[in-house]
């Protein structure tokens, strides 16, 4: 379970990146965080993998609490979380295989086990044939699939996806979403921040709408070009 209790984040002298957030995300949920650019979606996600710590309030992720956490414990937490970014955060001069293997190398697994697991993961995202290619040579959609395979390498209890389709075309975006849905069906929680409302409009997942660092309550209709959709229509 992930819990935010009265969480406020101030960046330096700029106050209110997040304002008094109270949230709870349950194990196995697929949660969508929606809102315009600068609304605080990424800040909310960074708090989960403790890239930043709250200025006030407490974030609890599984057994780890931001209230008292050492750098070593943050490392341990991150090894139990999968993170997918808009810019993929792949190491360009490494092969696809090495990128996916990286979390396993960090954990200190044996070479044989890593090879086996990475093959399975790459097969899952349909990139086994590209395993020896440099990450830099892949298309954007393929890069994001590699990033998802890497996020899944440690069998995390939650996958955080920060605008994972932000750089992708419609087809690749759908592929990424369906991969994340498949991961969620296998029991892993997924938290996805996006402003691609068109992509998620048909999905039945829990939605959290953010604006100006605040979580907005209740049903909300948002404007997208040529359409008006109710983003909380399928709220649990």
């Amino acid at each position: 379970m992930i819990q935010f209790r009265q969480v406020t984040v101030n960046y330096g002298y700029v106050p209110g990146a997040l304002k008094d957030i109270n949230l709870q995300m349950h194990d196995g949920d697929f949660t969508l965080i929606l809102g315009p650019t600068g609304s605080g979606k990424s800040t909310l996600l960074r708090l989960i993998y403790m890239d930043i710590l709250p200025s006030s309030g407490v974030v609890t992720v599984d057994k780890w609490s931001s209230f008292r956490i050492s750098p070593r414990q943050i490392n341990r937490l991150r090894r139990n979380i999968g993170v997918v970014f808009q810019d993929f955060k792949l190491i360009d001069n490494m092969s696809v295989f090495d990128n996916v293997a990286l979390p396993l190398v960090i954990e200190g697994y044996r070479r044989k086990y890593i090879r086996k697991l990475v093959h399975v993961l790459l097969d899952e995202v349909n990139l086994l044939q590209s395993k020896d290619q440099r990450a830099s040579t892949l298309s954007l959609g393929e890069k994001q699939r590699v990033a998802i395979a890497r996020a899944m390498a440690k069998n995390p209890f939650v996958v955080i996806a920060d605008e994972p389709t932000g750089n992708l075309d419609r087809e690749a975006s759908k592929n990424v979403l369906s991969l994340l849905e498949r991961i969620n069906r296998n029991g892993t929680s997924v938290i996805m921040a996006t402003h691609d409302y068109e992509l998620i409009k048909e999905t039945p997942y829990k939605r959290i709408y953010m604006e100006n660092g605040e979580v907005l309550p209740g049903d909300r209709t948002i404007n997208i070009p040529n359409k008006r959709i109710n983003i909380l229509a399928n709220k649990e």
Partner: peptide, 16 residues
């Protein structure tokens, strides 16, 4: 720096 950043996100310790 990008690689180090990625490794940190993936939970790599200081020594590694």
């Amino acid at each position: 720096r990008r690689q180090i950043d990625i490794m940190k996100i993936l939970g790599a310790g200081n020594l590694l």
